[in-house]
Simulated scan of single mutants.
Amino acid sequence: MVEEHVYHWINNAEVMRMTKTLEKRRRDPRDREAEIVRAAISFFAEHGFDGSTRELATSIGVTQPLLYRYFPNKEALLDRVYEEVFVNPWNKAWEEELKDRSVPIDQRLYRFYCQYSRVILNYEWVRLFMFAGLKGLDFNARYLRFLRKAAFDLVVKEIRAAHGIDTNNEPTDQDAELVWGLHASIFYLGVRKFIYGMPIPEDVEADVALRVQAFLRGAPAILSR
């Protein structure tokens, strides 16, 4: 009787092991890849980009060869991290809303930066951006080139239009620097919280409103010069 019980226990354990193996084999590769990318984002945000793929694989609970099956090298994985964190969250609708001149410019800027702050003011976004700069990766330069085209030049044009300033000339680097000052001040809230461990205003959207108001008190005068 005891032998029969042990036999059934061993048999059931083997069935469970085989079932788990089959489940792993059946997993959609896209799900596994997404899981690796998600883990990589958390890993690099915590440890910086000096962390090795071997350490990353261990933290995920997979083998390094499996990791390389999805990403042939660390650079390919970092490119995917960049896309996932900095590119994909950008909402093209924000650009259309910034162009909507039926809405006052202060309300457009406030709405945009409230929405944008919800995307960037988090642990992973801020720390990855800072670590990338310290490591000398091109994340920062690539992202700022993107921002210049998608947001900064657009904001300059819309401020000009809202205040009757000539909109025919393309925004200059100096014009874009004005918007970068507003943009950076909002990003700095994340630096204070996730890099320095310092408190930030409890009501971030109210703080954004103040920053937008202060910006619009000075920017139109500078842009009209």
Rank of each mutant, 00 (worst) to 15 (best):
Y188A: 05
N91G: 02
L137I: 01
K20T: 12
A162W: 13
W94H: 11
T167Y: 05
I159P: 03
W90C: 03
Q64M: 10
L77H: 02
Y188S: 06
N168M: 01
T19H: 12
Y123D: 05
A34R: 09
R108A: 11
L216Q: 07
V204C: 10
F49A: 02
K74N: 02
L137G: 02
W9S: 08
E170F: 00
I222F: 14
Q174R: 10
L66I: 04
P104V: 05
A150M: 15
M1I: 10
L98D: 01
H5Y: 09
E205R: 07
R145A: 14
I200M: 07
V37A: 06
A45Q: 04
M16Y: 14
R101I: 10
R145Q: 12
S224W: 06
H8Y: 06
V85P: 00
G190I: 00
R69D: 14
R32S: 13
F139Q: 00
F44Y: 15
I186W: 09
A45C: 10
E124R: 00
Y82I: 00
R225W: 13
A214Y: 10
K157N: 03
K24I: 08
F131I: 00
R160D: 03
L189R: 11
I222S: 07
V2N: 13
F187P: 04
D203Y: 11
D79K: 00
G164I: 11
V119C: 08
C114P: 04
L22F: 15
V179R: 05
F71K: 01
E3N: 10
R54V: 15
F146G: 02
P89Q: 05
R127C: 12
V103F: 01
P72V: 05
R30L: 04
L66A: 07
R25L: 14
L109Q: 06
I36M: 14
Y110G: 01
V119N: 08
G218H: 05
G218E: 04
L182V: 07
T172F: 02
G181Y: 11
I200A: 08
R145Y: 02
L216V: 06
K20D: 12
V2Y: 13
R32F: 07
A206Y: 07
M130W: 10
E3W: 07
E14I: 12
A40T: 12
K99I: 04
L154M: 14
E95K: 09
V37R: 08
K92H: 08
W9I: 12
A39R: 14
D31R: 08
F215K: 09
L67K: 01
R17P: 03
A13W: 14
K193F: 08
I165R: 09
I159S: 01
K149W: 05
P201N: 09
N169R: 03
M18Q: 14
F187D: 05
W90N: 06
I10E: 15
